[in-house]
């Protein structure tokens, strides 16, 4: 007999015991461990997802902050640029004003200097001319400058026509004071007598003639009363000379300024 029934029963019981033992020691623990691991992994994945979501949120926040920061920076930059522009304009205006003031002051100083130079030059020329004239007259004509000037002045008085004499006469008639004759030098007695005599002949005997020495008068003789005057001086000769000197000085100064500007420009270019 191939089948032993006791063995069959024993094997059935053995198998059932084996099923129970394996269930307890193998399947349940292993399946539980697998489930626990799956749950753990699922939890970790969920946590990772949550962290990822948080990270994305943080990223968005940082991006947003960066954008805000950029906007603020740009706004501040624009403000600073505008303020710098305004400040630049202000400084430029100030510099321009100072430059203008300096230029005006320099021009004024230059003008004063020019004037002073002209005056010095004219005085010098005047002195030289007078000296030369005095010497020439003495050497060639055997007379002095004062005598010759008196003669010329007298000739000018004599040369007045009747209308002018009458007009002057009527003007002087209302004057109460004396006639004044001003000279740059003290007239010798002969010349002063000749002048006084001629004035009295022309404008009336009742007036007295008073002689004065006037240093400001440029080498000449001046006769005046009630605002009217007749004079002779070398000022007329000197005025044209003065004009020529003025124009010459101006030309020279302009040339000098231009040359200086050119030198300044060249210097700047070399510096650059």
């Amino acid at each position: 007999m191939l089948i032993d029934w006791f063995t069959v029963i024993a094997q059935v019981i053995n198998f059932l015991i084996l099923v129970a033992l394996l269930k307890h020691f193998l399947y349940q623990p292993v399946l539980k461990a697998i489930d626990a691991r799956e749950q753990r992994i699922a939890k970790q994945i969920a946590e990772a997802e949550e962290k990822k979501a948080q990270a994305l949120k943080e990223l968005e926040r940082f991006k947003h902050n960066n954008e805000d920061f950029d906007k603020q920076r740009n706004a501040r930059m624009n403000t600073v640029i505008n303020e710098a522009k305004v400040e630049r304009e202000r400084l430029m205006d100030k510099a321009r004003r100072e430059a203008d003031e300096l230029r005006v002051r320099l021009q004024s100083e230059l003008k004063n200097e020019q004037q002073s130079l002209t005056e010095t030059l004219i005085n010098r020329i005047q002195e030289e001319v007078l000296l030369i004239a005095r010497k020439v007259l003495t050497d060639l004509a055997g007379t002095t400058l004062e005598v010759r000037m008196t003669e010329v002045f007298l000739e000018r008085l004599r040369a007045l026509n009747n209308t002018a004499v009458e007009e002057l006469k009527s003007t002087f008639a209302s004057a109460s004071g004396p006639f004044f004759v001003r000279t740059t030098f003290t007239l010798p007695g002969e010349q002063s007598t000749a002048i006084e005599t001629l004035i009295k002949e022309l404008f009336g005997q009742d007036k007295t003639v008073q002689f004065e020495v006037e240093a400001d008068l440029i080498c000449g003789i001046e006769f005046s009363a009630r605002g009217q005057k007749i004079e002779w001086s070398i000022a007329d000769y000197l005025s044209s000379l003065q004009k020529n000197i003025d124009s010459m000085l101006k030309t020279q100064l302009q040339t000098g300024v231009l040359n200086q500007a050119d030198r300044h420009k060249v210097h700047n270019e070399q510096s650059v």
Binding site: Q11, N14, L18, L21, L22, F25, L26, P29, V30, A33
Partner: peptide, 28 residues
């Protein structure tokens, strides 16, 4: 012999399972 060898197999299976599963880990 059938029953004896069956017990032997049962012993190996159960003890082997027990030895391994008593230190089960839920780590990754």
């Amino acid at each position: 012999a059938t029953i004896i060898y069956t017990w032997g197999l049962m012993f190996v299976l159960v003890v082997g399972s027990r030895l391994i599963t008593q230190h089960l880990s839920t780590e990754i």
